Simulated assay, not measured.
Amino acid sequence: MTSPPRSTRNSAHTPKPSAYAPTPTSKKPAPTLNIPEAMRERMLTAGALSGPNKIVVPPYVFSERGGKSMVSLMYLGSDVCGHQGIVHGGLLATLLDEGFARCCFPAMPNKVGVTANLNIDYRAPALVNNYFALRAETVRQEGRKAWVEGRIETLPEDGSEPVVLVEAKALFIEPKQAAVSDVPCSLEPFNGSVPPISSPGGGASGEC
């Protein structure tokens, strides 16, 4: 996996991940690295869309305990364009879908769900070869349902305000069979001998 360009990586403006944690008690893995490599290669964001000039390194994720909120920091390269020099809106939608799922699943009774609805408002172009922050918050949870709101924004430099690029709201529903399934869809690191049946997100995105 290739790191962001050296000129960016060594810049005084390179974001410091710890500054974006939602609370002091948050954990901060690069979750996709916990997925077996053979599975990762078949996944969309962790496989096909990862690598040089794409999703350059695994996003750095802070997840507040209990599924309350999450911040994911990422660097998107030059080969994920729709219009030249602008990150494809479909990729932003996919990142929101997976990020929102990662945020709310710990709040679910069986820690799993699928996307029932995802509404997106695009606010400004996301320029490639830049760092971005995805912020998500579980605003409501009732039984097998969780509602999540959030956004993708630029990362501030020199104290400037971030620019909101896209905002979204989503509803996730835990499948009725999740309580009895031996192999649930899961966002948590997998340590067993049987691989989980899919990656995060799902529903409309076909991940689960």
Rank of each mutant, 00 (worst) to 15 (best):
T2I: 13
S3L: 15
R6F: 15
T8Q: 12
R9T: 04
N10S: 11
N10V: 13
S11D: 03
A12V: 09
T14F: 05
P17S: 00
S18L: 08
Y20M: 04
Y20Q: 05
P24Q: 07
P24W: 12
T25F: 14
P29A: 06
A30G: 10
N34Q: 12
E37H: 12
A38E: 09
M39A: 14
M39K: 13
R40Y: 11
E41H: 05
E41S: 07
T45K: 01
A46S: 15
K54F: 04
K54P: 00
P59V: 01
F62S: 09
S63L: 15
S63D: 10
K68E: 01
K68G: 02
S69Y: 09
M70K: 10
L73R: 03
V80F: 03
G82N: 01
H83L: 06
I86G: 00
V87R: 05
V87K: 04
H88S: 06
H88W: 00
H88D: 05
L91P: 08
A93D: 02
T94M: 12
G99K: 04
A101H: 12
R102E: 02
C104R: 04
A107V: 11
A107Q: 13
M108N: 02
K111A: 15
V112S: 15
V112I: 03
V114F: 13
A116H: 07
N117Q: 11
I120P: 08
Y122Q: 04
Y122M: 08
A124F: 03
P125G: 00
L127V: 08
V128Y: 00
N129R: 13
N130D: 15
F132H: 01
A136M: 07
V139C: 14
V139N: 01
V139K: 10
E142H: 12
G143I: 07
R144Y: 08
A146S: 05
A146F: 00
A146I: 03
R151V: 06
I152P: 03
E153N: 14
L155G: 00
P156S: 10
G159A: 07
E161L: 12
E161R: 09
V164C: 15
V164G: 02
V164M: 10
L165T: 06
V166T: 07
K169M: 08
L171W: 00
I173Q: 03
Q177I: 13
V180I: 12
V180L: 15
D182E: 15
V183C: 06
P184M: 04
E188P: 04
P189C: 12
F190K: 13
N191P: 00
A204D: 08
G206Y: 08
